[in-house]
Design a protein around this nucleic acid. Structure first.
Lengths: 354, 354
DNA sequence: CGCGCATTTTGGATCGATCCAACAATCGCG
DNA sequence: CGCGATTGTTGGATCGATCCAAAATGCGCG
């Protein structure tokens, strides 16, 4: 069917074909495509009809060659199966879709090697910019290297250097101070921090907030466990916590997943979280409200962070030489049941959260 | 630094520049790039060094124009924040990364409109193919339309027509028969099915399996609830289940998230899942093994499905006119505690699963 | 009518890599 | 030495859209 250009499908309709069909020149069709006010209404109408009739598809690759942008960005996350990164991704997608940009996704799996490889590939594809959740072990020099490449980059959730480059994330430090203060107010003096095995800013910030809050009250921040960030590892960490000589009465986990595992491990050992032991999480994933007891945690709004990171990247692409920005999405302490009763015995049972 | 081509960064190094630096022609550099055996070892060496010295980046867009593939594919998922789709995405990423392809991700949010828009955009970017988890309400004609476009497409998890086009997914029907049989064997006669609000093949298949298994035993499949696929809706569905005149003794949920919500709702109402009421899930997300009681469910291995979908798409791109394939990843019934005791009273407490 | 001016339209050059046919260099061998 | 085969290398044309300077068109007005 149609102009009989090729044999069987790969005969793509070009702007030239549309021009011939509408009886105008390539240039005019190009102007119509880009909604230039220069073309007469009647001509525009005719060309538009020809495009529809031939089933024309814009070839963005060809357009790019003549010096333009690709309207394409890259998103590198550490672990897409982590709901936290999945939410971030959804936020990025929403903003980028609205801006008419397509997003390359790559799951680095915390491997700096894969991250390098993927970044290289995205460069070859000519992405206009990148949103990067740096894998643990990424050298801080990467930011400078990307600047040399002329590739706009927004770091998200984690950053390689405290002052360098664009960044969107939460104030983990403040969030951690909030929960820690909360536990101290409830009377806890021996509070454990249960973190991941990897070193990156999201961990350093949490740890700093934890230490700062305890220090303010003359308490020591010396109970720190480092375990894989899985439900199961959290469950197993309960034993380690209970076995300590000076047994802690509360624990704050790096994230909700670990906190929920921790609660399970505690109750499996006859220690009821929220009554015999306080547990707090971080992130406020949907699961947290549904846990039993419902989990006290710090909301970090990853979807919003994703949206902010995307908007910031679009701004940076439009103005590559602008001053670096750091967008901090506020955290909120969400008080539920899991830190409820300790150390005073509570009256009956804690109220259900809505 | 370097050749001083442009003013401040956008002066990209081209193949021509490399050629000049190495004292050969464009064509030779191009051959080196594509690892042709035609180039002399000494020349190859020299060119390689020049590329490194100038910081050359391959421009895949330009290469594409001359008729080649983009080495780019599109992945359209319904809801990336659903762990099931996130796992699928990770599986796709793994295979595509290994094949040197970049993946455009789009989150359609079950909107056929957004799906159309995104598909169009991906066509403009010249993707070599698409992995599509069709949004609910997608017209079955889409498969044919994509064929007309000459755009290879693998449907994943859901399909628009039972026989048309390439597909990778689980055998939901068989999986559902397995759980249903399991519950019947345990003595249940009034079993509820708790599904989502949307109509698509993943629901139709489950429902068919449920009905078939019950019919084999002369039981009626008439208790079917349709609720949003969230933990909270599952929790609220417990009330509806318990309120029915002929109260069911067991329920199978569309997925684990709903099942876990259901269990919470039941125990909040004093009905202990696994003892007073049997609950089964679907998918086997990590959370299922950690729930209390641990959830009996059907493992569907979304990561593997993603990998299979990606491999199939690569095959289809290599051979666009090959016969359609349907890859079915087997399901497994995972028996844990949540269907334990009913209807006979059980001795003591169910054993903990490892 | 011819000129200036505003409005539309146009063809050639261009982006950066690939394809292809042709060419240069080297070698074996009768 | 001449010829064909083999091995390396090359320049011109090409992909499809955009940029730009220039041309065509229409219109008002002295």
């Amino acid at each position: 069917m149609g102009e009989g250009a090729g044999d069987c499908g790969r005969g793509r309709v070009t702007l030239q074909d549309v021009a011939a069909h509408a009886g105008v020149s390539r240039s005019t069709v190009s102007l119509v495509l880009r909604e230039s006010p220069l073309v007469a209404a009647e001509t525009r109408e005719r060309v538009t009809r020809s495009m529809a009739a031939l089933g024309y598809v814009y070839n963005r690759g060809a357009a790019t060659m003549r010096g333009g942008r690709t309207r394409t960005i890259g998103l590198l996350v550490c672990e897409i199966t982590n709901p936290f990164f999945a939410e971030l991704t959804a936020g990025v997608d929403q903003v980028m879709d609205a801006a008419g940009c397509a997003t390359f996704l790559a799951n680095t799996g915390e491997s700096a090697d894969k991250q390098d490889r993927v970044l290289q590939r995205m460069r070859e594809h000519g992405v206009d910019g990148v949103i990067l959740c740096p894998a643990a072990g990424t050298p801080a020099s990467l930011v400078g290297r990307m600047r040399d490449w002329g590739l706009p980059c927004v770091q998200a959730l984690r950053h390689l250097s405290a002052r360098d480059g664009d960044y969107a994330g939460s104030d983990y430090r403040l969030g951690m101070e909030l929960v820690t203060e909360h536990l101290v107010r409830l009377g806890h003096e021996r509070i454990a921090l249960v973190g991941g095995t990897l070193n990156h800013s999201a961990w350093a910030d949490r740890r700093a907030g934890f230490a700062a809050a305890l220090k303010r009250h003359g308490l020591r921040a010396d109970i720190v466990l480092r375990i894989p960030l899985t439900r199961r590892a959290g469950m197993e960490a309960a034993a380690a916590l209970l076995a300590r000589s000076e047994r802690p009465t509360a624990a704050i986990a790096f994230n909700d997943i670990v906190a929920i595992g921790l609660m399970l491990g505690l109750s499996d050992r006859g220690v009821q979280p929220g009554r015999d032991f306080a547990v707090a999480g971080f992130d406020d994933v949907p699961e947290a409200a549904m846990a039993r007891p419902a989990l006290t945690t710090v909301a970090t709004q990853p979807f919003q962070i994703g949206g902010e990171a995307a908007s910031l990247l679009l701004r940076r692409i439009a103005d590559p030489h602008g001053a670096p920005e750091r967008v901090i999405v506020p955290t909120r302490l969400i008080i539920r049941e899991s830190c409820g009763a300790v150390p005073r015995r509570e009256r009956g049972r804690a109220p259900r959260s809505a």
